[in-house]
Design a protein around this nucleic acid. Structure first.
Ligand SMILES: NC(=O)c1ccc[n+]([C@@H]2O[C@H](COP(=O)([O-])OP(=O)(O)OC[C@H]3O[C@@H](n4cnc5c(N)ncnc54)[C@H](O)[C@@H]3O)[C@@H](O)[C@H]2O)c1
Ligand SMILES: NC(=O)c1ccc[n+]([C@@H]2O[C@H](COP(=O)([O-])OP(=O)(O)OC[C@H]3O[C@@H](n4cnc5c(N)ncnc54)[C@H](O)[C@@H]3O)[C@@H](O)[C@H]2O)c1
Lengths: 207, 207
DNA sequence: TCAATATTGTTAAGTTTTTCACATAAATTT
DNA sequence: AAATTTATGTGAAAAACTTAACAATATTGA
């Protein structure tokens, strides 16, 4: 019933609705959403229907109500604790990023093998690698962000897998497959850029 | 004929084939590719067919030949010049990242509004914002990475659009729509993480 | 040389995702 | 109060994407 892109779409609805809310709107129609997100209004209604979000015929949907429901769906009642493995350039950027907090996500620690990176008093702290397993178990961490060098990516996945973690957001260029126990989602920034370059060049060729 | 995820799939084929190449393999079968990437072998053959990559019945495909063809498709004959707008935490990580180079992508400059960020002698240099338009025109830049604060994202897109740039890889949380002239691809890291959290929590619920 | 085998290339079938279309119901107008 | 308008909710249709199936054909081995 719920399909692959649906949660990402739900997050887009959420962003838009929060924006409309700050502008003072109380109600919204599926058309308003579909126009700005460039999808069909029936897809919006179908998504809402699939998640049990209901409106009033003729009256549209109440923004507050949708937002509450979306948070329920996403499990935003409790703060999600996340750790970062590999506090290099991109790992550090993510650790210091304030944008996770307001979505109920807290980066509670980073881990690195390089002693010069370690800062146990930091907020969040950066701990040594050999503490990963204990930390994950003691703090019941289910999700981590992996930003280690490509060379150690496989090894790191194996290590994390053994801790019983549930999900990895992988920024290394190695593409990992999910298993029943461990979901691995891969973000390949180089590929995203190459894809964009392809699209733009193709467009140019057509002209 | 060519569909949305096809180029990203092609890039995955490329990664895998390069790996097989370093292991000494000369030939590959669609099955070898589909097994490791967890798709069907007919999809691999269909992708190849769509892009004019041919093999030999019974003999499989020649790795060198596929890789050459993929590079042709992606236009890897010339180096792609890219600029970064907003050299903060994530912009700087991207600017210093060495992984673009070996895919024929060169970050030739960064731009920032903050004088303390500027370093005209850097490699690549970080220039002041007010040089964006001239630089893009003089250097025939078609692609940029946008890593400015959310607040100035809209303004930056307008500014870039006016320069006639062809593509933006947008890391801000604002989702922009592409136009006929300007392709904007959005990477929303927070959404990726929220999506992963959803999937993992749902998995846990089922158990 | 000829049968057996293995793999591509491609058409058809299947699956997933999105949109269309409209009956249904709430609100507004006459 | 009836008619009209306007949106939802949803089943059917369409589109997009993936896989299955197999004929065509190259290679191997007897
Ligand atoms: N920087 C970027 O813009 C960018 C873009 C796309 C992909 N990536 C990928 O993200 C990953 C990190 O890139 P980066 O530029 O931040 O690299 P980096 O070298 O700056 O950071 C890597 C960090 O991982 C640490 N590390 C090494 N081995 C470790 C281990 N076994 N356990 C834990 N930590 C370990 C290192 O000490 C270092 O601090 C790489 O795989 C890279 O390919 C980076
Ligand atoms: N850091 C992360 O991990 C992360 C993750 C997801 C999304 N993002 C998004 O990426 C963007 C950048 O994040 P960041 O953490 O690097 O922020 P940052 O504040 O470290 O960097 C932003 C940079 O942009 C510069 N800037 C401001 N106005 C500008 C303008 N008009 N033109 C050019 N440059 C300008 C600032 O001087 C600063 O150097 C934000 O939109 C953020 O939401 C960041």
């Amino acid at each position: 019933m719920t399909n692959k892109g649906q949660i990402l779409r739900l997050l887009n609805y959420k962003n838009l609705l929060k924006h409309l809310q700050t502008l003072g709107f109380k109600k919204v129609f599926s058309d308003n959403i579909s126009d700005t997100l460039e999808i069909s209004s029936s897809l919006v209604r179908k998504d809402f229907g699939n998640f049990g979000i209901t409106g009033n015929r003729k009256g549209g949907y109440e923004i507050d109500s949708i937002l509450g429901k979306i948070d329920d769906i996403l499990g935003k009642d409790e703060i999600q604790k996340v750790v970062v493995i590999g506090v290099g350039r991109i790992g550090e950027a993510l650790m210091k990023y304030q944008g996770f907090m307001k979505e109920g996500i807290q980066i509670v620690a980073g881990f690195d093998i390089d002693p010069s990176r370690i800062n146990t008093e930091g907020n969040p702290p950066v701990l040594h690698n050999d503490k990963i397993a204990d930390f994950i178990k003691e703090n019941d961490i289910k999700i981590c962000i992996m930003t280690v060098p490509q060379m150690v990516a496989k090894h790191t996945v194996d290590l994390l897998s053994a801790t019983g973690i549930g999900g990895i957001l992988n920024f290394t260029p190695i593409k990992f497959q999910s298993t029943a126990e461990l979901t691995i989602n891969n973000i390949n920034i180089v590929h995203e850029l190459e894809n964009l370059i392809y699209v733009v060049n193709k467009q140019k060729d057509k002209e």
